[in-house]
Design a protein around this nucleic acid. Structure first.
Length: 759
RNA sequence: GCCGGGGUGGCGAAAUGGCAGACGCGCUAGCUUUAGGAGCUAGUGGGGUAACCCGUGGAGGUUCAAGUCCUCUCCCCGGCACCA
């Protein structure tokens, strides 16, 4: 038996698989299908990360198991290649983003192939390919046509260092997601997508899918559905009312003030309210600054107005308060210091009254019921180069006119200067020849939109494109979508829960409503992997110098050992720190499996432990308990080695069970041990009946008063009486039971007997 | 503050209420090898010569039996954060 040379074995089979197109899905048809999906990578200049390998390997294992179970499996791959890092890198090095992207994807492709993932490379997609983003633009036009894409002047989060407008999700806590610098508030014309129109369904339809409870909760909290009522308070002496929103109308008798958001107060000013100069100044100051969440003092000023409590008829002061948000509820609240902590803080700070709630009063229906959401419409424009151009034309006569569908894609022009500008305009704004265009409606000269889409656009529908990656007449052909959708199992990172995962559900529902996509939900099952940290427990990053390079590991230990270790290192859904010596163990295990091939016998009996391994590995893969599946395979190999010789059939079951984890070595050994065809084409082993099950010996624990005192070897299925009698013959047990009466006996068949005696 | 997830050997971790520490790393001893940073075998939670005793962040409880269930509490990680 020759030595295990992982480099030669892996090179050999990868070459073969690439020639035969091993991972290819069969065309849509009658066969039962399985669609396995991982989040397609962003091809950064840093190359593949050990974190990618974890997710990809997990789904590769599941995809390979499904193939062995007879499914037509789609396990596709592509590149989410628009985005800031590439653009920034290109600016720094003076290279075209398209060239940088091409180089990066080539490196990623080579790395992924070196790991033996069974992707369908025939369906590779790239969001920056005009044949792809043509459809991203087309979908945008559908949003526009149905009134769900609109332009509005609004305050945005502006990052002065990246010179980019950010969505709220990208500027959490007032800091830029990219550079962590402080952002400022700027007012800009922005395209928005009306995701709030789908808020209710995005919340409700979570009931239809198999996601972890934590993801559902997080999405629901993000959507923030709240049922309450809108109550009108009359303004004393003015022919006007204030609408407040509350989820606690029952506390209305405890109201001691009404507070409005600065933004709301300004609207009043604009519609004829004459406030004192002090109040005006306060409002303007508050609007100009970004209030910190949880800041020590709650700013506020009395307006001099009074509102009338519709239940008690009392007059309470109206205040402008910074803690009341302009875009939540109605932008005004009733202040109930006894019931609400924030109201109490405000009342205490400003010397307002605190009043108990009058429980005796019956309230009835106080106002109109209303449902509100925390979710905001999605700011969809970026003033950057490396994104999909928004396919709109601004005509001096007709206003905003969509680019006709036949003129798609609106290609990103090749330009020399694509750095963002100080003015905050897209660099595309400087390309006069590209901007100047005839209005599709009136044929007069008009101007192209120069904003581009955010990097979330291409990933919001990519799983549809995989069904038909080269389709020319639709995002994907309906028959193909009908066959492949929904995605059966989607694994990804938790960081995408309220971004990509929610965005793509929104796009999907919209496309479903307009008969482009089948199925209410895109992903039937979602799971997530734990993050891989550096050995020091920190996030891996170049600047920290703690990055683990997969290429070196593949070279030293092999792709199979690396894949196996990624699965073995800890519970799949939990964060794990990389252990530098970890691969030694999985490599040794593979060496052992290799050696065993030289010890196979012609015996045809199947061993009980093989059966137990089939059961455990099969169940563990489904539950993503890959670490214990690997450990069971190690136990089996060890057992084979210990017994000196291993029946060929048992050995090949080990190879088959191991093949999704370590596809190269198992294929090689399958050939060496004369297996039929390819190990990957062999059916998944099923549990077989073990003869003479009752003759099997089991170890039964003997306890006295709940403490283990001895063990007993008995035939499986032995009765309580038999076990008890046998136990009582043992001197260790006699000693503990002594002369005392056995009050009670607990018997768990094949496992344990507990004798309870007086103390 | 709120919502999730955690806390078990020197380390990564196992454990349908039923032998705590499987499996792997590391370590110790022996064997083997021309040699080895290779392989094999045995050992490896703490205390004790031993019989045994103690041990899953902490304190109580339920149970014949608790890492697992209940009550209280401390700490770590992730997300959200004035959303009425």
């Amino acid at each position: 038996m020759k030595k295990y040379n992982h480099l030669a074995v892996e090179r050999k089979w990868q070459k073969k698989w690439s020639q035969t197109g091993a991972g290819r899905a069969a065309a849509a048809g009658k066969r039962k299908k399985f669609y396995a999906l991982i989040e397609f990578p962003y091809p950064s200049g840093d190359g593949l990360h050990v974190g990618h390998i974890r997710s990809n390997t997990a789904m590769d294992i599941i995809a390979r198991k499904r193939r062995a179970e007879g499914y037509n499996v789609l396990y596709p791959i592509g590149w989410d290649a628009f985005g800031l890092p590439t653009e920034n890198y290109a600016i720094k090095t003076g290279q075209q983003p398209a060239i940088v992207t091409k180089r990066n994807t080539a490196r990623f492709r080579q790395q992924l192939q070196s790991l033996g993932f069974s992707f369908d490379w025939n369906r590779e997609i790239n969001t920056t390919d005009p044949n792809y983003y043509r459809w991203t633009q087309w979908i945008f036009l559908q949003f526009y046509k149905h009134g769900l894409a609109y332009k509005a002047r609004m305050p945005i989060n502006w990052c002065p260092s990246c010179r980019i407008g950010l969505a709220n999700e990208e500027a959490v806590g007032g800091r830029c997601e990219r550079c962590s610098g402080l952002t400022e508030v700027r007012t800009k014309e922005q395209w928005l997508l009306a995701i709030t129109k789908y808020a209710d369904r995005l919340d409700r339809d979570l009931d239809l899918v198999d996601y972890p409870a934590s993801i559902k909760t997080q999405q629901r909290n993000w959507i923030g559905r709240k049922e309450g009522v809108v109550i009108k308070f009359e303004l004393k002496g003015l022919n006007k009312t204030i609408e407040i929103f509350t989820t606690r109308p029952d506390t209305i008798t405890g109201v001691t003030f009404v507070a409005v958001a600065p933004a709301m107060a300004r609207q009043w000013l604009e519609t004829g309210w004459t406030a004192s100069p002090d109040v005006k100044k306060f409002i303007n100051n508050e609007l100009a600054r970004r209030p910190d969440a949880g800041e020590q003092t709650k700013h506020g000023l009395a307006t001099g107005l009074e509102a009338v409590n519709p239940v008690t008829g009392e007059s309470v002061p109206v205040w402008v308060a910074s803690y009341v948000l302009g875009d939540a509820g109605t932008g005004a609240i009733m202040g109930v210091p006894v019931a609400d902590e924030r109201d109490r803080e405000f009342a205490t700070a400003h010397g307002l009254a605190i009043k108990p709630i009058d429980q005796s009063r019956s309230l009835g229906q106080l106002g109109e019921k209303r449902v509100t959401y925390k979710l905001r419409d999605w700011v969809f424009s970026r003033q950057r180069y490396w994104g999909e151009p928004i396919p709109m034309i601004n005509c001096p006569h007709c206003g905003w006119v969509p680019v006709p569908e036949k003129d798609l894609p609106v290609k990103l022009p090749l330009i020399k200067k694509y750095a963002p500008t100080e003015s905050g305009e897209s660099p595309l704004a400087a390309i006069a020849s590209w901007i100047k265009v005839r209005c599709p409606k009136c044929s007069e000269w008009a101007r192209r939109e120069t904003d581009t889409m955010p990097n979330w656009a291409g990933s919001s529908w990519y799983y549809l494109r995989y069904a038909d990656p080269r389709g020319r007449h639709a995002p994907a052909a309906p028959a193909k979508l009908k066959y492949w959708l929904p995605v059966d199992w989607y694994n990804g990172g938790t960081e995408h829960t309220t971004l990509h995962l929610l965005y793509s559900r929104f796009w999907h529902k919209f496309l479903y409503d307009h008969k482009i996509a089948p199925e209410l939900e895109p992903y039937q099952k979602r799971t997530s992997h734990g993050f891989v940290l550096a050995p020091d427990g920190q996030k891996m990053s170049k600047s920290r110098g703690n990055v683990i390079n997969p290429d070196e590991l593949v070279k030293t230990f092999g792709a199979d050992a690396l894949r196996l270790y990624e699965m073995f290192m800890g519970p799949f859904d939990q964060t794990v720190a990389w252990q530098p010596d970890g691969l030694v163990g999985t490599k040794r295990f593979l060496e052992r499996v290799w050696r065993l091939a030289g010890q196979i016998s012609s015996a045809t009996n199947l061993l009980p432990i093989t059966n137990a391994t089939i059961i455990k590995v099969s169940a563990d893969i489904e539950a993503m308990k890959f670490n214990t599946a690997v450990s069971q395979l190690m136990i089996l190999a060890h057992q084979f080695e210990r017994s000196g010789s291993v029946p060929r059939s048992d050995y090949q079951i080990l190879l088959k069970l191991l093949s999704p984890f370590a596809p190269h070595i198992t294929e090689e050994l399958w050939q060496i041990t004369k297996g039929r065809g390819s190990v990957h084409a062999a059916p998944w082993p099923s549990v077989f009946a073990v003869a003479n099950q009752h003759k099997k010996l089991v170890t039964i624990v003997i306890q006295v008063n709940g403490k283990k005192r001895s063990v007993l070897e008995m035939f499986a299925g032995s009765s309580e009486e038999a076990v008890k009698a046998e136990a009582l013959t043992q001197s260790e047990i006699k000693k503990w039971v002594d002369q005392r009466a056995i009050k009670k006996t607990i018997f768990v068949p094949n496992r344990l007997i507990n004798l309870v005696v007086d103390n």
